[in-house]
Nucleic acid binder design. Structure first.
Length: 922
RNA sequence: GGGCACAUAGCUCAGUUGGUUAGAGCGCUACGCUCACAUCGUAGAGGUCGCCCGUUCAAUUCGGGCUGUGCCCACCA
């Protein structure tokens, strides 16, 4: 029996992972004899490298998957990656920049090739890293959101929604990232507060010309105000004033009623502004007068639609000002802001400025401040899609863990806004929309949608443009990445080919081999809906909510039953770990240093369900130490087995003594608790239970007890416990548990599964323990702890004691029977049994004890006795008071009263014993 | 502006239907290299359960208010 004295994680992990793959343990296929358990991985971006958030997320999934696999489910963990449109394009653009090139230098085709080349080279890096972590994904099924079949699913989804009227094109204010030069959805424009200014700008007001004299009645009371010559508006973005086409006031605002008979002039542009009145204008904010910039502000946009105002777009796609900005054209938006302020300052048109917190949208990929901008884009009408998705959660067909996310989800869903899905980038799924060349133009041209004649079609349309007779071409836009990932739970199983109804079939359907289709059909039927989704709260709206909508829309069913939302990984100060902040702990480094198991175990122990995880390097020591403990406990057992030549075969239940019975009972309890915790997704509680059992029951007591009387029966029990503990531990620490499992297999004569990966989850062993005997044994353990305690109080250090025991003959026999290990664990050189104790140090209902030593300094001991007496008296007092309370006796339940009475007698005895000890020693 | 959480030992957190002598891990202190493990063992100290009010025989637990912290949503010019 050879277990190396040092555990070498790196070597073992690589070897074992290879074996798992060779054996195909992670592969799942429909099997109607088993219940499926399916998890689809949140597909990491192909630009990603494994960070601690991934490590946490994927360890949770692997724990569940490995547990369910052992528990007899047909278990599938579907892996894959996300093409991550903007993120990937940015990375490749940066790459290109190193060569001094821009994507436009290459053109779409060449740049696209470059993107694919990048993806082929780096796109699966993170999957390899997941393997290092021990992830038991079914790698044969690895998917990518731009696989051919997957792309077909995306196209199909678009077309079906379009045909249902749930996708539309329109010109609205969207969030525009001037750096990525694309539209973003509201969710992708992350709101962040920045320090800015609120500028109060004077807009000149002149009397109306003689052609349009003011209505006399209207202007009379305030006619004189016209001499004040201006109206003040407040704005945080002065540069947008160049696009102002109106000024808005609240109709109830008497302060500004005089403006109705006036002509309001936009400074710099010297343009006359329309005056509009609308209830939406807040009387209390700023001056109550609002500049209206229809093409650059969502509120103003709505106002303009309502009041039929003109739209003037003043910006290019890179947020420089365009020709509509006159002298400022060509300037960057912030540069223009300063320039405009300077001009206004010169003309004395700035009344004041106040520091102001602006909640500005930031591009979630490059963190540039987004520009609200009028643009022709494609949208999903989400409200109809949201209805069944709301209902499913309300009816608990889908549950959130922790439950509080349910409210967050419902709150968002009930206020859902339409989803802008078109992006002006090159990496992604092209929209199946076709247009004649004569119609395609810059978005900034702001042609009316009605004028544009486009065709939504799976393939290039045959017909030619009626105006210019040229062919239709696919529009350049691509879809939001999330428009593909929201299909993940079923598109990964081959939808729509698999589940296609004849009328919705794509044209490629016919060319598919029938058996391929039916295979996919089987998979989809069997594995969908999936079981559990494990994710971080950050993508609740981006992904989880949308998957639920897509599930109902395309599959008529929930995509998953349970959603586990884990916390964010933070550093020890509570700051979110991020590469840019430089406070990351690299999981790969931890794996390198300690191994994957310690990383996984530490994470699972630290991450209490749903709360954020605070990490520091030293947090990983727990896992390292524990794995070391397991390794050494095993090594020791094997050494003993080797020394004694014991043959290990099956445990003999009839031969169990009180020690075995006790430890097996503890194992049973741990199995029950751990299983229940895992079923409730209380993963860290499960981790704690097993940790506690292995270390503090099995190692600290059982192994210590059997050490010097290593009989075959004890050895068998020990190996039985070890095996079951390893199985309980396997989901958390798959490598070391497998390694040890394999050495048990080779060294013991037991019939075991081929691998712990496919071993069955532990069941409780039937031992029907005698409760009284168990209690007796537990009392013995408690006494040993008390002896150690007293020894410490007496300041005896390592000194061995001679223990005098006064007890019944029966109990004395029990002690004699267990004397060897009691002596060792209580650090006694000898035990004497006596009918009379000269000086009692310890007294329980079973026995009294003394240490037969001269010159004992009992002062510390007496002090701790005093303390205990005082504590007991306090509780006793409270208990007595409670039992003397009439109200308590009438109101409290019988059980509670009985419990209190029991407590009273127990405490009284305890108090009496302690006082006797104290008095005798004093 | 709206919503959701959280506040328990120095730190990170348990405490699941109100009744426990309020727990664990890490850290800290003392003692110990007992032939698996010092990545170890034994023991200990440390908490008026954020504050106030209420419901109740009884509140860390339920309700209200306050304070503090975090997060999310919003058309805060």
């Amino acid at each position: 029996m050879d277990i190396p004295s040092k555990y070498n994680p790196q070597e073992v992990e690589t070897k074992i992972y290879g074996q798992w793959l060779d054996k195909g343990y992670f592969h799942a296929a429909p099997n109607h004899a088993k219940t499926p358990f399916t998890i689809v991985i949140p597909p990491p971006n192909i630009t990603g490298i494994l960070h601690m958030g991934h490590a946490l997320n994927n360890t949770i999934q692997d724990v569940l998957i490995r547990y369910k696999r052992m528990a007899g489910f047909e278990t599938l963990w579907m892996p894959g990656t996300d093409h991550a449109g903007i993120a990937t394009q940015n990375v490749v653009e940066k790459d290109l920049a190193k060569e001094g090139l821009k994507k436009d230098d290459l053109g779409r085709q060449a740049f696209s090739e470059r993107l694919w080349a990048w993806r082929d080279k780096y796109g699966s890096t993170i999957l390899q890293q997941l393997k290092n972590l021990g992830a038991s994904c079914d790698w044969e099924r690895t998917r990518f959101t731009m696989d051919e079949a997957y792309s077909e699913a995306v196209k199909e989804a678009f077309i079906r929604l379009y045909e249902k009227g749930l996708i539309y094109r329109g010109e609205y204010i969207i969030n525009w990232c001037p750096r990525c030069k694309t539209a973003l959805s509201d969710e992708e424009a992350a709101r962040k507060e920045i320090n800015g200014w609120l500028y109060y700008i004077k807009y000149p007001v002149r009397p109306k010309t003689k052609d349009h004299p003011p209505q006399s009645g209207e202007a009379s009371p305030k006619a004189g105000r016209l001499k004040t010559e201006y109206i003040v508006v407040a704005t945080t973005r002065p540069e947008t004033m160049l696009g102002d086409t109106a000024l808005a006031i609240n109709p109830k605002d008497e302060r500004h009623a005089w403006l109705k008979s006036a002509k309001i002039i936009l400074p710099i542009m010297e343009r006359e502004l329309t005056l509009v009145e609308d209830e939406i204008i807040d009387l209390a904010f700023g001056t109550g007068a609002v500049k209206v910039t229809p093409a650059h502000d969502p509120v103003d946009f709505n106002l303009a639609k309502k009041h039929n105002l003109a739209f003037i777009n003043i910006m290019n796609d890179d947020a420089t000002l365009n020709q509509n900005a006159g002298e400022f054209s060509g300037m960057d938006r912030f540069e223009a802001r300063e320039a405009i302020l300077a001009v206004l300052e010169e003309e004395k048109l700035i009344e004041k400025k106040e520091p102001y917190k602006i909640s500005a949208g930031h591009c979630y990929r490059c963190h540039t401040i987004v520009e609200p901008r009028l643009s022709l884009q494609w949208f999903v009408n989400t409200k109809p899609l949201a209805q069944p998705a709301i209902k499913a959660v309300e009816e608990e067909k889908i549950k959130f863990y922790p439950e509080r996310w349910r409210k967050v989800y419902l709150n968002w869903m009930n206020n859902i806004q339409d989803w802008c899905i078109s992006r002006q980038i090159w990496w992604g799924h092209r929209l199946p929309v076709w247009q004649c060349k004569c119609q395609t133009g810059e978005n900034s041209k702001l042609v009316h949608p009605e004028d544009l004649n486009y065709i939504v079609s799976r393939d290039k349309p045959d017909k030619k443009c009626v105006r210019c007779n040229s062919e239709y071409e696919q529009i350049p836009d691509v879809l939001d990445t999330w428009f593909s990932s929201w299909l993940w739970p079923f598109a990964t199983f081959g939808w729509p080919r698999a589940s296609c109804k004849p009328q919705a079939a794509s044209h490629k359907q016919e060319s598919l081999k029938p058996e391929a289709c039916s295979l996919q059909q089987k998979d989809l039927d069997y594995f969908y809906p999936t079981s559990t989704l494990v994710t971080a709260s950050e993508i609740l709206f981006f992904w989880v909510a949308r998957m639920i909508m897509a599930g109902f829309e395309f599959m008529k069913e929930i995509p998953f039953k349970d959603v586990i939302i884990h916390g964010t990984v933070r550093d020890e100060r509570g700051i979110k770990m991020s590469k840019s902040l430089g406070n990351i702990i690299d999981p790969l480094e931890i794996i390198e240093k300690f191994g994957a198991d310690p990383l996984r175990f530490s994470l699972m122990l630290t991450a209490s369900s749903g709360s954020d995880v605070y990490l520091s390097d030293e947090k990983f020591l727990v896992g390292r130490n524990f794995c070391n403990k397991i390794w050494n406990a095993t090594r020791f057992l094997f050494l003993k087995i080797n020394d004694t030549g014991v043959r290990i075969d099956n445990i003999n239940i009839d031969a169990l003594d009180e020690i075995d019975t006790w430890v097996l009972d503890e194992l049973n309890n741990s199995i029950c608790k751990a299983t229940a915790h895992l079923d409730n997704y209380r993963i860290n509680d499960a981790t704690k239970v097993i940790y506690e059992f292995f270390w503090h029951t099995f190692c600290d007591w059982y192994i210590e007890i059997i050490k010097e009387n290593f009989t075959p029966d004890k050895a068998k029990t020990a190996i039985y416990i070890l095996l079951n503990a390893l199985k309980l531990l396997h989901p958390f620490i798959p490598f070391i548990s497998e390694e040890i499992f394999q050495s048990i297999k080779t060294n013991c004569e037991l019939t075991l599964e081929e691998s712990i990966t496919v071993a069955s989850w532990p069941k409780t062993i039937k031992i029907s323990p005698d409760v009284k005997k168990l209690e007796e044994f537990k009392a013995l353990i408690q006494t040993i702890k008390d002896i150690r305690n007293i020894k410490t109080d007496l300041g005896l250090g390592a000194k061995k004691i001679i223990l005098a025991v006064k007890t019944s003959d029966k109990n004395a026999a029990y002690w004699r029977q267990n004397e060897n290990w009691i002596k060792r664990l209580a650090q006694a050189q000898r035990i004497e049994y006596t009918g009379l104790l000269s000086r009692t140090l310890y007294k329980s209902e079973h026995w009294g004890l003394n240490f037969l030593l001269e010159d004992i300094d009992t002062s510390t001991f007496l002090k701790s006795l005093e303390k205990k007496i005082k504590e007991t008296e306090n509780i006793l007092k409270r208990t007595k008071e409670r039992l003397a309370n009439e109200n308590f006796l009438t109101c409290a339940s019988v059980e509670v009263i009985a419990q209190e009475k029991e407590k009273l007698t127990q405490l009284s005895t305890q108090e009496k014993r302690l006082k006797e000890l104290y008095d005798a020693l004093k």
